[in-house]
């Protein structure tokens, strides 16, 4: 008797889901398998226009980590809805292969929810495996994108930029020139202006206080 693996059975269940609720449940089950072979199917779910299932799929993809990245990058770039969810997944995973997609999303996505996820994600890319020169180059690009986004029209994106700048700066040595640039961006966000709500100012001030030399 041939044994069907639990992942294969759950993939089959997902593909046969006949209602939004069934799809949600099947996605949750598949996401909980923690098995890399689920990644392409979870990525497919991102394009089904079912927000509940997409949230479950994003969480599953983030918990798969780097094993999910290849499937995420193969996503159809013309499926806007799926791409927005993929940005969130890549931001959560922090794999440097997501860099281009995150930069593009922060700079030009129409949805504030996608830009805010990208801003947070650009601050927390895992660069440890890269050579020093390459690390420097990637950080420069993240920093430039985040600094440009301190002028984003939506408060929530500027809030996420403060979070991104703080986590980017945490990984820098105390004498890095980027550290001062990140601080300058946070100072801009912490200043009271007509367009900057108190919550953004307070988040930027908190980041600055945490970055103070001990």
């Amino acid at each position: 008797m041939s044994q069907v693996s639990p992942v294969a059975a759950r993939i089959a269940a997902l593909q046969q889901a006949g209602s939004a609720l069934a799809l949600l449940q099947a996605t949750q089950e598949l996401a909980s398998c923690a098995d890399a072979s689920a990644a392409p199917v979870l990525v497919e779910v991102l394009g089904f226009n079912n927000p509940g299932a997409a949230v479950a799929a994003v969480n599953g993809l983030i918990s798969l980590g780097t094993a999910a990245v290849e499937a995420l990058l193969q996503l159809d770039p013309d499926n806007y809805g799926a791409r927005a969810w993929a940005v969130r997944a890549l931001a959560g995973i922090g794999d440097v292969r997501g860099l281009e997609l995150l930069l593009d999303a922060l700079g030009s996505d129409v949805a504030a929810s996608v830009r805010r996820a990208a801003a947070k994600g650009l601050g927390q890319l895992q660069l440890g495996a890269l050579a020093e020169a390459e690390q420097h180059q990637v950080r420069q690009r993240c920093l430039a994108a985040l600094l440009a986004a301190t002028a984003d029209g939506e408060w929530v994106v500027r809030y996420a930029v403060a979070v991104g700048l703080e986590s980017l700066a945490e990984g820098l040595s105390p004498d890095a020139t980027e550290l001062q640039q990140a601080r300058n961006g946070l100072v801009t966000l912490s200043e009271a202006t007509e367009d900057t709500p108190p919550v953004v100012q307070r988040r930027a001030k908190l980041a600055l206080s945490r970055l103070e030399p001990q």
Binding site: R116, A119, K120, Y159, A160, V199, R203, L206
Partner: peptide
Amino acid sequence: EALLACMDLLL
């Protein structure tokens, strides 16, 4: 600080 930490997780 607790409220802002809560917001950070929702980005």
